[in-house]
Design a protein around this nucleic acid. Structure first.
Length: 433
DNA sequence: TCGTATGATTTTTC
DNA sequence: GAAAAATCATACGA
């Protein structure tokens, strides 16, 4: 017996011996002859299986004829269901090993990133969150609004492209799946196809498409990264601080020239006032100290200017304080809440002026300091007049804050540059150095 | 276009 | 770890 016969025997438990196979196209014997029903059925199955196994050896015409014969065979539905069952069982065993693979960590990373960047997920918020990060990183508020809107616009563009492509892929995936399912359904009329097999096929298609989707996500992530690096790389997109911010910082620097090391709280306060970050404040002071030290002469004019400004403000405040002390109780007049940092050029700021270090301008000090402030003012005004007349070389300021080694020390600071909030001997809380 | 100013980063120092 | 010093990269004005 040949291999085919043995297989058929094994499958159907049918002994084909003695059964005639005529010309490759053997129609089943007429029903209900001398053999019992069971025997006939066995023979039928054997016939069908034999035909199936030999169908590939025949020509197309022969095969077509055989196929027709098989389709018309009365045992076909029964055999069909058996084959379906066999397929299902083998399919299940194959699938058991393949399915339920854990989610791809790379895909998860990409998904998380796209969500964080505001590309996937809800339309609102994501992009603005990233833009806010950009704002903080590049340090400007209003100054960078153009860049941020640009950033947002580009991010929106990326988002749109991503979603369009994603939609296309999904559509293609669905179309292809439908097509394959239709094909399989079509084929299921001629060959046994179980629903699970269709399901498996759909799974394969989806996996293929999700790998394409992953590529799309990867490309999108790359695009977002490039965009971010372009917009957030502060070095590339360096923006000068606003004039007001620079003034505030300079004001503090020159009024604390004896020790220009703002405390953390002071930095925070300055950062808030200047609409920049604390680290930007630190950078600014670091740069300022080093550049000032390197070229004191160059900064002298600037120092004078700020000293004059400070003194004028101080005088205003002092005058107001005097008036206040006369009209009010002798206790601390108008001592504002601790920690507030008033702009030196903001009107009557001195009424509640405090140093950024938290040294509040106590009412008790007012009387003692008023005269010196007024003197300072007189001095500054006279000096500034000379400066304004273009008579350079005035010695309103000299760099007493630096020691012989080039380091900052609590040296006696010229009256013109002493912070109005403190006397010459005052001690800062930010004497970190 | 070029020199200077300036904010940020990196390296060194303490 | 913070500040100093060096350096980079960009903005800006003449």
């Amino acid at each position: 017996m040949d291999e085919q016969a043995r297989i058929m025997q094994a499958l159907g438990g049918v002994n084909l011996a003695g059964h005639s196979v005529q010309g490759g196209m053997t129609l089943p014997p007429p029903h209900g002859h001398e053999a019992t029903d069971g025997d006939t059925r066995k023979q039928d199955i054997g016939d069908i299986l034999h035909q199936i196994m030999t169908i590939t050896d025949q020509s197309l015409d022969e095969a077509q004829a055989k196929k027709h014969g098989l389709n018309c065979h009365r045992m076909k539905p029964a055999l069909f269901s058996v084959l379906c069952e066999i397929k299902e069982k083998t399919g299940l065993s194959i699938r058991g090993a393949q399915e339920e693979d854990p989610p791809d960590p790379q895909l998860m990373r990409l998904d998380n990133m796209l969500l964080a960047e505001g590309v996937s997920g809800p339309e609102k918020g994501g992009g603005s969150a990233a833009a806010a990060a950009a704002a903080a990183a590049s340090g400007g508020a209003a100054d960078n609004s153009i860049e941020h809107s640009d950033y947002r616009a580009k991010l929106t563009q990326i988002r749109q492209i991503y979603h369009t492509e994603l939609e296309k892929y999904e559509q293609a995936c669905n179309e292809f799946t439908t097509h394959v399912m239709n094909l399989l359904r079509e084929q299921s009329r001629t060959r046994p196809i179980s629903p699970k097999e269709i399901e498996r096929m759909v799974g394969i298609i989806h996996r293929k498409f999700s790998s394409i989707q992953m590529q799309l996500k990867q490309s999108t992530c790359e695009a977002v990264m490039i965009l971010r690096s372009r917009f957030l790389d502060a070095r590339r997109k360096r923006r000068n601080f606003s004039k007001q911010a620079t003034e505030i910082l300079n004001e503090y620097f020159y009024s604390h020239l004896s020790n220009p090391y703002p405390s953390e709280e002071a930095k925070e306060e300055l950062a808030k006032k200047c609409s920049i970050t604390v680290s930007q404040v630190s950078n600014w002071f670091g740069n300022k100290r080093i550049r000032y030290k390197k070229n004191i002469g160059k900064f002298q004019e600037e120092a004078n200017l700020y000293a004059a400004k400070t003194a004028v403000t101080a005088a205003h405040a002092a005058a107001a304080a005097v008036q206040n002390s006369q009209t009010n109780s002798p206790t601390t007049p108008n001592s504002g809440p601790s920690g507030s940092f008033n702009l030196p050029n903001s009107g009557d700021m001195f009424m509640s002026m405090q140093s950024l270090n938290g040294d509040s301008y106590q009412g008790a000090q007012v009387g003692a300091n008023v005269q010196s402030q007024v003197d300072t003012l007189r001095h500054v005004i006279s000096q500034t007049a000379g400066y304004n007349d273009g008579l350079g070389g005035n010695t309103l300021y000299s760099p007493h804050g630096l020691n012989a080694n080039g380091g900052w020390q609590d040296a006696t600071t010229p009256s013109s540059v002493i912070s109005p909030t403190e006397g010459p001997g005052s001690v800062h809380s930010d004497t970190s150095n």
